[in-house]
């Protein structure tokens, strides 16, 4: 009986994760290596991968800086009333609960071309929806909790005494942050970065709604895969998916390593 359950567990694992991965790999190589290269070197594929790359860079930078700052303010700020802290703390988790598509839709409804704010910004030459800024904002919405949730427990665990000790030794906040706080939260932040990058690479729903999925303009790797599948171009879809999968596996390995380091410190 026990063997049956163990076998079943492995079967589910294989069916859900290993088989699709193998299928992607074989599917992308259906027309040989040249077929894979053709699929990847299409101008729209290169552009889509570049868009994904740009979004990853922006989102990771912004999310890291503001995620760490929010974590510090939520944990350390004594001037915030505990109830307000609790409220902010729950709002941070909102993107986990809300579907990314709805997140994207909110941005369209807020600053889309049909809204007053959107029209105003467009008049000033700033395009948000159906352009890169909207895609970055949508992805930020989805990834926001990741960094905060990684850094907050570490900050809580180390407590504020080491920082206070630095203060008493004459160090001001910037020096204290880099010399005392940062070494303790470093691995948590790296873990958060890895999660953010992985999530950004794979983000589909929010980006699809905000970008409009315009080829060679606002198309990302994931939305290109979606379009290739729609057009029955399975080999190309598999090829782009393989690139994304390869990145994800690399990130996972990095994450495991970061996790181990995090536990050590």
């Amino acid at each position: 009986m026990r063997r049956l359950w163990i076998g079943l567990t492995y079967a589910v694992f294989a069916l859900l994760i290993v088989v699709p991965l193998v299928k992607i790999a074989t599917g992308s190589l259906e027309d040989g290596v040249s077929g894979l290269l053709d699929a990847l070197l299409r101008p729209e594929a290169l552009h889509a991968l570049m868009m994904t790359g740009i979004i990853v860079v922006f989102v990771t930078l912004i999310n890291t800086v503001f995620g760490v700052m929010l974590a510090i303010y939520l944990v350390r700020a004594a001037w915030l009333h505990p109830r307000i802290k609790g409220l902010l703390n729950s709002i941070v988790d909102l993107p986990y609960a809300v579907s990314p598509v709805i997140g994207g839709l909110m941005i369209v409804l807020l600053v889309g071309p049909d809204t007053a704010l959107g029209a105003l910004l467009e008049g000033a030459g700033i395009k948000i929806v159906y352009a890169l800024p909207g895609m970055v904002i949508a992805t930020l919405f989805v990834t926001f909790p990741l960094m905060v949730r990684e850094v907050m427990p570490v900050l809580q665990e180390i407590g504020s005494q080491q920082e206070e000790a630095a203060t008493m030794l004459g160090a001001y906040s910037w020096y204290t942050f880099w010399k005392v706080t940062w070494p303790s939260i470093r691995w948590g932040v790296i873990y958060g970065v890895v999660l953010t990058v992985a999530r950004t690479l794979g983000e589909f729903g929010a980006v699809l709604v905000v970008s409009g999925n315009i080829m060679n303009l606002t198309q990302t790797a994931t939305t290109l895969v979606y379009q290739d599948v729609e057009n029955f171009n399975v080999v190309a879809a598999n090829g782009v998916a393989l690139v994304l999968a390869a990145f994800s596996v690399g990130l996972l390995l990095l994450m495991e390593w970061a996790k181990k380091r995090k536990e050590v410190h």
Binding site: G159, Q161, Q162, E164, A165, A166, T167, M168, G170, A171, Y172, K179, V180, P183, S184, H265
Partner: peptide, 17 residues
């Protein structure tokens, strides 16, 4: 920072790294 006071904390709060 400007008071010129040394403080020994209850759990020492040594910089562990």
């Amino acid at each position: 920072q400007e008071r010129g006071i040394g403080f020994v904390f209850q759990n020492y709060a040594l910089f562990k790294h």
